[in-house]
Amino acid sequence: MTKIIILSLLMMLVTAPSRILPAFLLAERKLPPFIKSFLHYVPYAILGSLIFPDILKSAGNIYSSVAGAIAAFILAWFGRSTLTVLVGAILAAFVISHFGSL
C-alpha cells in the first residue's frame, strides 16, 4: 500500500461518518417538531449557501458568470427542464466570455 492509498482510506474514515451517522441515528427516531421544521429548511439553506456568492466567479469572469446565472434563472422561472437550464446557462456564459475577449 502506498502512502496515497493509506491517505485515501483515512480520508474516507474522516468524511464518511458525517454523511452516514446521522442517517442511522435519526431515521427511526421521532423528532420534536422544531427539529423537524429545522431539517425541512436545511435543503433551501444549503442551496443558498452553495450558490452565493460563488456563482459570481464560476465562469471565468463576473460578466460571463452573471450572464449564465441570469439565463439559468429565466429558464428555470419558466419551468424548463434541468438540461435546458444547464445548456442555456453554459451557452450564455460562453457567448459573453467570447465577446468580452474580442
Binding site: L47, S58, G60, S64, A89, S97
Partner: peptide
C-alpha cells in the same frame, strides 16, 4: 479552455434550476 471555463457555471445552473421552481 474557453468551453471548460464556461462550464464552471454548470453546477450553479443546476442549483438554480432546482431552486427557482421550488421557492417561487
Amino acid at each position: 479552455d474557453s468551453l471548460q471555463e464556461s462550464m464552471g457555471i454548470a453546477i450553479y445552473a443546476i442549483f438554480i434550476g432546482l431552486l427557482v421552481p421550488s421557492v417561487r
